[in-house]
Each structure stands twice: as structure tokens, then as C-alpha cells.
């Protein structure tokens, strides 16, 4: 049985949430698996991350190099190629970084590559049995991956629930020496932080979030009214930002903001994984959508099949009434 490596990203000395998910995924391949965490970086931050990871990984490979202080996927790939064995299974989170790193890594390792894996049904000899979603999540596909020469898998964030388990006492192995020459044709310059915008949706306990179902820019006023009545803020999914109806600062999702509200009202949002990836901390999700088959109803706590353009104003006026009475 091939070894399983899990590449863990980190920021500011804190390991990515995926760390626990990748362990769970590894166990889906082989329940007895004991994956090796692989981290790249530099300095005290890297050390802090390694320290955290050895609480859930038996072995943590630390690759420290000043050139890797910022995770430039081109450089990380080179480093990993020199440090990791090429015939094993490498798990990476399907994030902005994973999308950048993994396809090229798989080619260089002459391994198979499967992207955005949302389920693992185990391994059959050297064939991995995987599940992917396609067409915006409308259907799933069973995949068979020949891992005989190794495999790199990008795993969908949030698809593999971390398992409860006692903390372990793993070892940190310093693999920095094996990095090799780190020169590449792409150089990191800087990170431009998104404009703050007028409203910081990450600070609100209740969010009224709108998606394509709001239909036109002018209708957003309906959500604004409800938000005002609830003391909430209006956030949205990507299509609303693409259509320029709301600024980017209001977007919840993998390419937008990550939010941790108490209550999340998903109005006219279909529930794509990229959007849901921005929801952390198990909020109480209320989904209102015209389409009873919308994927959001799978993850919501409460579902209402209704036209938001009619439902929201009604809700607003009822909440207003209720507040007047209680005052």
C-alpha cells in the first residue's frame, strides 16, 4: 500500500482547516493509513505549524527555505519534486493553491491526477475509487484512478469531515536539505488586499445572502430591507458580483470572504460548493429558493420553496410587526 502524503497550506502560523480533512480522506483510502503531513515555508511561522500538525499526524515533513516564505506554487512544486517520492499518493486541498500546484506536480511525478474529489470509496489494488461532482453539482461521477505510478488528489474542501480522535504525538522530520535549486519562471510580487467596502460581512451574526434568484439589481433593495429589519447585512454569491450588482466585498465563497454568522439566509442561492466553502462554523442555514431541487437544500437546516421576490417582503413586514409588538 502506497504511502499517503498530505500537503498542508498555512497562513500566519496557522494550519489550514484542510489539515484535519486530509487525514479523514486518507482514512477513506485506507482505514489504517497514517498520512505524512508535508509543509513548506520559513521561520517561526513554519515551526508553529509543524508543532500543531504533529498533534494529528504521526510524521510531519518540514521543508524550510527562505525562498518558500511565500507559498509560490511554482517553487513549492520544485521543492516537493525533490523531496517527495514519486510513486505515492499525495493529497492536496482543492484550493487556489491546490489548483495552482497539483496538475503540474502530478505530471512531473508521472503520477495520475484527479481534481476536486468529493468522495473516496476506497482502493482496489492500485486503483483508487473516487467520486467527483460535475455540471455545478447536478450530477456525480464515479472515477477510477490508476495509482500504480502514484497519484496526486485535490480534495474538495469540506467534503471530508474531520474525525474525532485523541491527539497524537507525531515527529517532525526536517527535509529542508533536499530542496535543491529553487529558481522558476514565476516570481511573487505582492498581495493586493481587496477593498474593505462599506460593510464588513465577516462581522455580522446574521446575513441575508442573495444569489442569482434576486434577478435584477433593483431587487436587492428587498434584501436590504429585510437585513435592516433584522439588524443584518446583505451578502451574496459570485454571480451577483459578476453582474456588478454588489461589490466584491459582499461575496461569500472560496474566492470571496469566509464568514461565520449565527444565521445565514441563502435567498435564491443554488448552493454551489464554491459558495458554501465560504461558510464556516456551522451557522443555522435558512434556504429559500424557487427550485425544490436546488443543492442548497442538502446543506441547509431549514428549507422553504418560494419566490424570494414575494417571500422576503412578506417576511420583512411580519418581522417588523413582531418587533413593534415586542417594543
Amino acid at each position: 500500500m502506497a504511502r499517503i502524503f498530505a500537503y498542508i497550506a498555512h497562513k500566519g502560523g496557522i494550519a489550514d482547516d484542510a489539515a484535519a480533512e486530509l487525514v479523514a480522506a486518507a482514512r477513506n483510502i485506507d482505514p489504517a493509513a497514517s498520512p505524512v503531513a508535508v509543509v513548506t515555508g520559513w521561520g517561526a511561522e513554519l515551526d508553529a505549524v509543524c508543532e500543531t500538525l504533529r498533534g494529528s499526524y504521526a510524521e510531519v515533513w518540514k521543508i524550510a527555505n527562505q525562498a518558500l516564505a511565500y507559498p509560490n506554487a511554482e517553487l513549492v512544486r520544485k521543492a516537493l519534486l525533490n523531496v517527495l517520492p514519486h510513486d505515492d499518493i499525495v493529497l492536496v486541498s482543492h484550493s487556489h493553491f491546490g489548483i495552482d500546484l497539483s496538475p503540474g506536480l502530478a505530471i512531473r511525478m508521472n503520477s495520475a491526477f484527479v481534481s476536486d474529489v468529493s468522495g473516496i470509496d476506497g482502493i482496489d489494488g492500485t486503483y483508487l475509487k473516487l467520486v467527483r461532482q460535475e455540471f455545478g453539482g447536478q450530477v456525480s461521477a464515479h472515477m477510477r484512478c490508476d495509482a500504480s505510478a502514484g497519484a496526486v488528489l485535490n480534495l474538495r474542501p469540506g467534503a471530508f469531515k474531520p474525525q474525532e480522535g485523541a491527539a497524537i504525538n507525531g515527529v517532525i522530520v526536517d527535509k529542508s536539505a533536499g530542496v535543491g535549486a529553487l529558481t522558476v519562471g514565476r516570481r511573487y510580487l505582492e498581495t493586493v488586499v481587496a477593498e474593505a467596502g462599506d460593510v464588513d460581512i465577516t462581522k455580522h451574526a446574521v446575513l441575508v445572502s442573495v444569489g442569482r434568484g434576486i434577478q435584477e439589481k433593483d431587487n436587492i433593495a428587498i434584501a436590504e430591507e429585510l437585513a435592516e429589519t433584522l439588524g443584518a447585512a446583505v451578502s451574496c454569491s459570485r454571480p451577483v458580483v459578476d453582474a456588478k450588482w454588489l461589490p466584491k466585498s459582499r461575496q461569500v465563497g472560496s474566492s470571496g470572504k469566509t464568514v461565520k454568522p449565527k444565521i445565514y439566509m441563502a435567498c435564491g442561492i443554488s448552493g454551489s460548493f464554491q459558495h458554501l466553502a465560504g461558510l464556516k462554523g456551522s451557522p443555522f442555514i435558512v434556504a429559500i429558493n424557487k427550485n425544490p431541487k436546488a443543492p442548497i437544500f442538502q446543506v441547509a437546516d431549514v428549507g422553504i420553496v418560494a419566490d424570494i421576490l414575494e417571500f422576503l417582503p412578506e417576511l420583512t413586514s411580519k418581522v417588523r410587526e413582531m418587533k413593534q409588538v415586542s417594543v
Binding site: C145, G303, E314
Partner: peptide, 25 residues
């Protein structure tokens, strides 16, 4: 090809949301 799709399927739906019934009020 090292990666092949064996079939498409629609996964059995989990519990999902509690759907509220009744008239709008």
C-alpha cells in the same frame, strides 16, 4: 488514461433541510 469515469449517478440525498410546509403566513 489513468483516470476514467465509470459512470454518472445522482447520490442518494441525505436528510437535507427541514422543509417548511403550509401557506406563506
Amino acid at each position: 488514461a489513468k483516470v476514467k469515469r465509470t459512470d454518472y449517478f445522482v447520490p442518494a440525498l441525505g436528510k437535507g433541510a427541514e422543509m417548511l410546509e403550509g401557506d406563506q403566513e
